[in-house]
């Protein structure tokens, strides 16, 4: 029976790619939060026999994650703002 017109179930390749990029944008902060919480499980001073993590290593890790997130975020921004992005998944949410 004729119900309201539904959005197509399958998208053409380009819009499909755009939507997956938006998914990545949404996922990125979660990944960042998880990676930045990794230091919580590192060995610390005076706990067990394991030598504590070196501060320089810790700094390299934290800044490495930072750079990774910035690069990914900038890449996603460039990919999404490409012509006729439309960011269709942008609307109608919430």
């Amino acid at each position: 029976m004729a119900s309201k017109p539904k959005p197509p179930i399958f998208l053409e390749r380009r819009s499909y790619r755009k939507r997956r990029l938006m998914d990545a944008v949404r996922l990125l902060p979660v990944v960042g939060a998880l990676l930045w919480m990794v230091p919580l499980i590192w060995p610390v001073v005076g706990e067990g026999d394991v030598p504590p993590q070196q501060l320089s290593n810790a700094a390299v890790y934290v800044f490495g994650v930072w750079v990774l997130l910035i690069v990914l975020s900038a890449f996603l921004w460039r990919a999404i703002k490409a012509p006729d992005a439309g960011v269709s998944s942008d609307e109608g949410q919430g």
């Binding site: 919580l40 060995p43 001073v45 504590p52 070196q54």
Partner: peptide, 24 residues
């Protein structure tokens, strides 16, 4: 610089996990 960092008084990792999480 890295060597100096590790050799300094704050060079060993001492983290209060609850503060790390809560302050973020």
């Amino acid at each position: 610089m890295m060597a100096q960092i590790d050799a300094s008084s704050i060079g060993a990792w001492s983290l209060d996990g609850s503060r790390w999480l809560a302050l973020t």
